[in-house]
Every structure is written in C-alpha cells, then in structure tokens.
C-alpha cells in the first residue's frame, strides 16, 4: 500500500495545504503572488527571489508540505526521497523571458540557467540536501496513471517516499499540485488513481469557487 500523506495546491488566487486554504492573493499588493505567500509564511531563503516561477512554485509547495508533515524529512535517509515532477510546457514561461532578454539587450545567464524544467527539482534537492532519484516528464495533461506507475517503480527500487508535482504555469494561469507519497500513512488517502484525481480536482473546485467570489 501507498498513501498520499500530504498535498498542496497553488492556483491563480489561492494556496491550500491538505485542502485548507492558507493564503489568498491580494490583488492590490505590489508583490508578486508567489512573493506574497513567501512573506506571509515567513520563509527565509533569499535565493527564492532569484528563482524562476517554476522553482518558486516548487519551493513554496514543498516547504508547505514539509511544514504540514514535520517528521517526514527525518524519517528517511538523504537518498531515499525521490522527486517525480511533470508539466505540459516544460520551462516555456522562462524560455520566453530569456528570448525577450536577448532580443532586447543581451542573453541573461541567470535566466538561462532556469530554462530547463528539471531545475526546480535541483533547487528542492539543494534546499533539503536530498541526493535521491529524480525524473521530469512533459505530458499533455495531468495524468494520475503517470504518477501511479512511476511511484511504483521508484518505491520498489530503493526510494521510500516520492515528492510528486504537477506544475504548469503559463502567463497568468497557474496550476500547481504537489503531493507526497509514502509507504505508510495512518488515516491518509490510499494512493490510487481515483483518489489522486479527486484530490487534484478538489483544488480546481476551490479555484472556481474563489474566482466566482471575485
């Protein structure tokens, strides 16, 4: 058995952990939405401001999951937590910024290093000192079967937990869903395609509801 032991949603206007909203976007703030969450959650990691949006989204949701599961990081050795991330458009959001930079001035090295989708996993590995397995795939849409199959592979080959994420950011559209899969999880949802779809979709409902309120 495997369990979804924690999860976080990050949408256009809300951020939720285990289904509970923890932060709502302040449209009047001068700060970016991700920076609002960073400040409100009192995270201290100056490198955050240098990251591209994918890495910021991965940073925020993985930190929130760790905070919701404080014992989780200590349970495992430094190479037993794998990362399995995917999205639809790779690093397209940052790629476009890089192209804009070189067409209107000069190629920026600090943008270029983020023009690969797997960099977000590197940032999370650095943050946590994780040396485990990692895989980044590009899929046409969020696909529970992808996570089921590859978590099965990872968890039968030496990994003890898998931090999974779907992180798709295109312009103003934000669809980030990060979740943790472990072999044990009392009172947590079993890791099935159905349960994963339900939980992922709950974030979308949340979004619709919030948008309707604006």
């Amino acid at each position: 058995m495997k369990f979804i032991t924690a999860y976080a949603h990050l949408k256009e206007n809300i951020c939720a952990v285990n289904g509970e909203m923890i932060c709502r976007r302040d449209k009047d703030s001068g700060d970016s939405w991700f920076k609002q969450i960073y400040k409100q959650q009192e995270f201290v990691y100056p490198k955050f401001h240098k990251m591209d949006v994918l890495s910021q989204a991965g940073f925020l949701t993985s930190k929130l999951i760790k905070r919701a599961n404080p014992q989780f990081a200590e349970k495992y050795k430094d190479d037993e937590i794998a990362m399995l991330f995917a999205n639809q458009s790779g690093s397209a959001e940052t790629d476009q910024k890089f192209v804009h930079a070189y067409r209107n001035g000069a190629p920026s090295p600090s943008l270029f290093v983020y023009t690969l989708p797997n960099i977000v996993m590197g940032e999370i590995a650095i943050l946590n000192k994780w040396y485990g397995e990692s895989l980044f795939a590009v899929l046409p849409e969020f696909d529970p079967e992808f996570y089921i199959n590859h978590c099965h592979i990872l968890l039968s080959a030496g990994s003890e937990a898998v931090l999974c994420s779907w992180l798709e950011i295109a312009g103003n559209q934000i669809d980030v869903f990060t979740f943790l899969i472990e072999k044990e999880g009392e009172n947590r949802s079993e890791f099935t395609a159905d349960n994963l779809s339900k939980i992922a979709f709950a974030g979308n409902l949340h979004k619709t509801e919030i948008n309707a309120n604006y």
Binding site: S89, A92, N118, L135, V138, L139, F146
Partner: peptide, 28 residues
C-alpha cells in the same frame, strides 16, 4: 517556444499511428 513538446510528439504519434502517447523526459 510556448509549447515545445506537445505538437512534435503528437505529429510523431499520428505519423506512425502509435498505440500509446510517447513519454517525454526533460531532465537537462
């Protein structure tokens, strides 16, 4: 540049009538 993988993958799948959607790995 907005979506660098999906159109080429679809084109390959259609061209050869592949049974499964190809999986794209992008880890630098």
């Amino acid at each position: 540049i907005n979506d660098p993988f999906n159109a080429p993958v679809s084109a390959v799948q259609q061209k050869f009538n592949l049974a499964n959607r190809p999986l794209v790995i992008s880890s630098a």
